[in-house]
Structures are given as C-alpha cells and as structure tokens.
Nucleic acid binder design. Sequence first.
DNA 1: ACCAAAATGGTACCCACGTACCAATATTTA
DNA 2: TAAATATTGGTACGTGGGTACCATTTTGGT
Lengths: 197, 197
Amino acid sequence: MTAASTPKGERRRQALVVAAGQLLAEGGFDAIRHRAVAERAGLPLASTTYYFSSLDDLVGAAVEHEARQELAAGRAQLDALADARRDTGTVVELILDLLLGTESRHGGVEPVLLRYERLVGTPRRPYLAPLIRELTAELQQLVAEILARSGAEAGREHVRYLFALVDGSVVNALIESDPDPRGAARRMLSAHLEQSP
Amino acid sequence: MTAASTPKGERRRQALVVAAGQLLAEGGFDAIRHRAVAERAGLPLASTTYYFSSLDDLVGAAVEHEARQELAAGRAQLDALADARRDTGTVVELILDLLLGTESRHGGVEPVLLRYERLVGTPRRPYLAPLIRELTAELQQLVAEILARSGAEAGREHVRYLFALVDGSVVNALIESDPDPRGAARRMLSAHLEQSP
DNA sequence: ACCAAAATGGTACCCACGTACCAATATTTA
DNA sequence: TAAATATTGGTACGTGGGTACCATTTTGGT
C-alpha cells in the first residue's frame, strides 16, 4: 500500500488516486500511467512511485475509489426515490444507471464500452478480485432493493439473471456496432420485467 | 492489404497470417506484434512490414483467418450430427462450443476469458467491424439451424436472446472469479431451453 | 532547537515496440 | 537475357513507459 504518514503527504496521495480514477474513467486501465497520473495531479513523476509501490497498486486504489464513489451515488439516487415507485420504466432506468453508469443516458457507445472494457479487464488483475467481489455484492444488493420496492421478484437468482441479460445484450450491441447499447439493454430488460412483475 | 505477387511471397504472407492467428488465440490482440509474429513464423522482422502495411492490417488478417477457421469447424461439427438430435443437453453443448469455443470444454477460465477480451476489444478496431458483422451473422445462422433441427424456437429474436444470456452469464462469471464460466452459461441456457422447447 | 524520518523532484536507465531504410537477391516479364 | 519489379533481411531510429537513484528540503517529535 505504501501509505503516507503526513497530512500533506496524505493529501498528495489522495490527489494521485483521484487523478488515476479520472484517467481510469476516461480511458480505461491502460490510461493509468505514472506520467499521466502525475501530470493530471500536478505532481512530479516520482511522487507516483513514492506513494505506490507499483502501478498495480495505483490501479487498485483508483478502481476502489471510482467504484465506491459510484456505488454511493447509486445509493443516494435510490434513497431519493424512497417513495416506492412501481412504474416499470423507472425501475428499468434505475437499474441501467447502476449497471451502465449515468453517463450512458446521454447516448453514445463510449461510456458503455469503457465500462465493459473495465469489466473484462478485471480478471487479468487478480489483486482486484476481492474488491470487485465486494462491490458486485453491494451492487446486487442495491438492485435487489429496487426490485423489492417496486414489487418485483428480488431473489438472488433473479437479480443474477437480470445482470446477465443486461451485460449480454450490451456486449452484443457493442460488437455489432449498435450505436445505442443502453437501448438494447433497455429493451431486453423491459420485456422481461413487464411479463414477470 | 499489401498483397504478394509471387507464389513464394504468397506462402510467406500466409505463414505470417497463421502465426499471427495463433498468437491472437493464445494471447489476444496485444500478443500480435511484429517481432512475435516474425519469430513465430520463422521469418525476419521486416517481412511483417513488407506484407502488411501496418500492424492493424496484420491483426485484421489474423482475425479473419481464425474466425473463418472456427466457423468452418462449427459447421462441420453441425453437419456431422445431421440426424436431428433433439436432446437438449446436446444442443446446449453445441451452442456453447460455438459461442465459447471447443477449448472451453476442458474447463478453465483462460480460453473463455481470451475470447471475451477479444470480443470487447473489437469495437476499438473499427476496421474489424464489417468482418465481425459478417461473421456474427453466420454464427447466428448456424445456431438458428441447430435450434431448428432440434425443434426449438429458432427465430432471430430468440437467437439474439440466447446469445445475450450466454454472454451475460459468462461475463459475470469471469468478473466474479468463477472457475467455470462455461458451466454458468450452461445452467442459464439449459434452464431457458428446457422450459420453452 | 535539533535530529531522524518523511517527502520531494529532477534525472537517468533500460526495455519493448512500430516503423523506416537500404543494399543485396531473386523472380518476372518483355 | 536484360531490364524491371518483387523480395529479403539486417539494422537503426524514435517514442513511450516502468522503475530506480539520490541529493535536497520539509516535517514531526522530543
């Protein structure tokens, strides 16, 4: 981990994590490079090796930062709609926001593609496995809550089924150059949820 | 394309494509590098730039080669079982062979992971789009035939649905470190096919 | 105030890679 | 067969990137 033991040091370290997180979101794992992170954070190159024992270490911190931030946003969004909305369309959009990111709302392949590149790139980074499992579990939990609140089947198996449906339609849309992968996922999801409330 | 105009030249060019294809299958897009391809083919480095105007050109040729070879194998396998087998288990395995590759049968994450890395890496290589679309269509056609022969629903939409189901469960299995992604896909697929013959 | 530890930042090393160059050969074709 | 064209293969250039080094400077505790 290579922690910092000074307040200022801690701030710098955090700045690096944030910078790395932005780069991750904008360009995927490969965009996290020592020099890019340092420049983005306005810090010298050597600071990246000082606070992180390796690039993987930095990547791990960035992933955790981004993922937790996104989960928190999702939870907040969910809480804002606390008054049980049962409208299927709303539920679908909520789930899509959680699985594809809110950026995917404004169309375009890029944000969705980036996300799936990240997903598929994860197994090659075994050090991310524990973190990813934890975050996946929380995400499933969140979606289960949404389903429960809207009166839909919210069992573990059903949630996993919906995840597969969304991920599968997105992946297929991406490789077929469909300009609207979120739309593809929406259709699958809607069709499924409307017939089994 | 930078074709060859000599028999020997054509053979060398082909050797490079085969080598690149092997590297692609073994290590993904990034494994296709001038030096690696040349070494694998037992040819000098410069031969790779002589026969292919760029690395992308070489990658394209490799993808086409591998994909067509695999499609042909799938078709052959299908024809061998021409006598309409209606057993769901057989159909499921056949579809999994086509979508995940026969290498995935002997367990292990690697071959499946490699395949999905390839899928997700495709959109970043726009020059592959036409080729991929063509091959995807043929693959769907193949699966439709399988379904039809076994008396299952074989409509375009249903096929797309099955693809999404398989791809989605695989992706989820991969990111959850499930050691048997093919098994995960098999369960989803079986469950679906057994209730809607 | 003083010392040890933490932090800083500039620089350098080394490797992998895509690609270009070019003189020497081999192959075609008129 | 001779000129034109295709091929060969060794080498070199330039870039990007991970990581190491190290002389200073700053900070925190006593």
